[in-house]
Design a binder for these strands. Sequence first.
DNA 1: CATGAATGAGCCTTCATTCAT
DNA 2: CATGAATGAAGGCTCATTCAT
Lengths: 220, 220, 220, 220
Amino acid sequence: MYRIRPIAAVGTDSSASTRAALIAAATPLFASDGYEATRTRDIADKAKANVAAINYHFGSKMGLYQAVMKAQADRMIEEFPLATDALSSAAPEERLHWLVRNLLRRVLVTQGGNQPTRMCVREFVEPTEALDYMVKEIVSHQFAIMKQVVGDVLGRKADDDELNLVAESVISQCFHYGMAEPMLTRLGVKIPRTDEEIDALAVHITRFSLAGIAAVRVPA
Amino acid sequence: MYRIRPIAAVGTDSSASTRAALIAAATPLFASDGYEATRTRDIADKAKANVAAINYHFGSKMGLYQAVMKAQADRMIEEFPLATDALSSAAPEERLHWLVRNLLRRVLVTQGGNQPTRMCVREFVEPTEALDYMVKEIVSHQFAIMKQVVGDVLGRKADDDELNLVAESVISQCFHYGMAEPMLTRLGVKIPRTDEEIDALAVHITRFSLAGIAAVRVPA
Amino acid sequence: MYRIRPIAAVGTDSSASTRAALIAAATPLFASDGYEATRTRDIADKAKANVAAINYHFGSKMGLYQAVMKAQADRMIEEFPLATDALSSAAPEERLHWLVRNLLRRVLVTQGGNQPTRMCVREFVEPTEALDYMVKEIVSHQFAIMKQVVGDVLGRKADDDELNLVAESVISQCFHYGMAEPMLTRLGVKIPRTDEEIDALAVHITRFSLAGIAAVRVPA
Amino acid sequence: MYRIRPIAAVGTDSSASTRAALIAAATPLFASDGYEATRTRDIADKAKANVAAINYHFGSKMGLYQAVMKAQADRMIEEFPLATDALSSAAPEERLHWLVRNLLRRVLVTQGGNQPTRMCVREFVEPTEALDYMVKEIVSHQFAIMKQVVGDVLGRKADDDELNLVAESVISQCFHYGMAEPMLTRLGVKIPRTDEEIDALAVHITRFSLAGIAAVRVPA
DNA sequence: CATGAATGAGCCTTCATTCAT
DNA sequence: CATGAATGAAGGCTCATTCAT
């Protein structure tokens, strides 16, 4: 016979939700203002939490920052992978194209008016304690992928320095639009934001780079 | 076909009046720590001046910052011009090589352990009030030169958007090593510092870009 | 004819939370030294609180100042009302006497060696942002009462300008001892401080003013 | 025979003129902003002199302030004397009227948009080192005149305390409009500024006070 | 576990004054 | 004698963090 049982009060799960709210609130602030210029009180207000909650959940402002960074990096990789199984046997040129496009998207895509990955890019220029973690856990692997793809396009044996050189030529073009955005805007250079615009830019960079790599293929 | 040749570097010295001492002391601090993180007291101490002297001579910390920026920009242009009369009738390829090399030097050259122009580059990523001035007075003109050279290399009619695209492909490669230095170092990518190293990188970027431009020359 | 009688005085105490302690500590300092000359550190020390507490509770030094002002004004009105229901049907002359006496007490009464309302009076001479609030919220209503009483004593129709004139003749005599105290002391004029002394002065001013109003009663 | 002789360069007399310019520049600033709030640099700028000139000529900011005070007090007395030989044998009532009117003028008269004697009045409320000098050298004598006139109007023997009481009743009414101006303005009380307006106010105060004194004449 | 309150360090700026030309 | 430059002392405020309910 069916017996009615009391259901445990689920609770507001406020601990987890406060934590998530803080990360969500902090992300655009850190992204647009940088670490130093972002005030913990602003984050707390925006998350409708108490200022002390930041220290409670993350130990310190930097702790929250790193949590945000990690979340962003994870999303970056998941949402815009630089390589995919579907293309594992595709032509190197196609894989490069794909890589360039997703790298661009990481940097340029906007969500709700914010550029979620801008803070990662900023870290490359103005490093905090978080960069070491980032590079070790995330970027180094991404960089290896890039060198792999670039090396395949190159199609000949190349030492590490040469691979770095070529890879950075490609990467720099992608990062540029996200990094130097304030300057580019002021110079009248249009920043691609929509998927179509980003794709068009990816085509340009890919074509430019393929030719560049081909030129490097022949020893000087 | 175009072959690459080196040029000589230039050096400067500083210190004279308190005003000059303040600028000299502030430059590396601003460059390495950024505007916010730099303390006026540290600047004054280093310049062996009173803290109030900063306000006296420059009105405010931001006034000093902008003075430093301007001084750096002026030196950048004087020391590493993107175009020179001597090359006005040279091959476009040679002029591009020259441009790339000097752009690289602006970003990478070190003087007394500091990278004097790093603060300008940082401004491109994390703008302050100073960027508007910079772009209007300095960068826009420099950018016009780049587009001119790139256009000449391209060798055919191109609208402004296309010129921007190509120019940024070249510029981004040069800026990259100055901007993303912290990341590159952690990735094991060697940052060129000596004239020879910089020249070598300039050769790579120039060759890579010449091929890239050639690829873009033919409509898709 | 009207004859004069005394009333009892009231006293208050202070100190509880930090907020209250700050107000209590700030009041005599602001009163004796003025807004500018009072140091926040002195207030905090005296209140055994941290300097930052001032900003936390009141936003700024001026915020604390206005809080003190408001507290003073409220106490002024509560402790020394210019009109009272008990006298609503009394002779106008008696109501004027009562008004004069309480106005004098507001300005002259000392508590623990301080003149708590001196800072309000000072505001009349050297206004800060707080005066607008004061006048709108407090003084204008008090002034209306005065004009009402004075008008009743006058006993005839009078336009606003004339009422102002007469009211100010009365008010000025009361304020004078609080305002010009530094000068009066140096001139050998004794400042009334005890209830008896204040009452005696009130008697003088009331008698003087009643005759003055009577003289104005007849058109020139 | 006439011989042409060189004429001595008269010099710019800049020493005396700078001194005078500083006083002229400082007067309205001190008057409107008070001692503390007035910046020496503003004075110097306005006088088209160097900041150091203030210390050179007057020893310190306070020295300049006292010089201004003295100049103002001297002018007050000369321009608006409280007693005059022409009236030495006039009726006491007429002499009181004259006194009241000139006292009012001292406080209310405006010259070039400034109230030159406001700073003296302010000193009565917020004393600086200058007040002692003022009272000893100027005010005490003026006060004696007032007591003399008031005593004559009173027409009977009166002790010093009683004379003070009556004199202050008169003086307070005059000072009031100059002292409490910021409050009066906000209360909608018109401040007399033209000679006609001031005269009208003088008539009121005199009439009011004459009746007041008459009432005091008879012992309580 | 969350909150309002409190803390202390530190920073930029202002200002009157003095120094050296 | 006058000036531009330099001085040193404070002062108010901001901010991340911690404490006590």
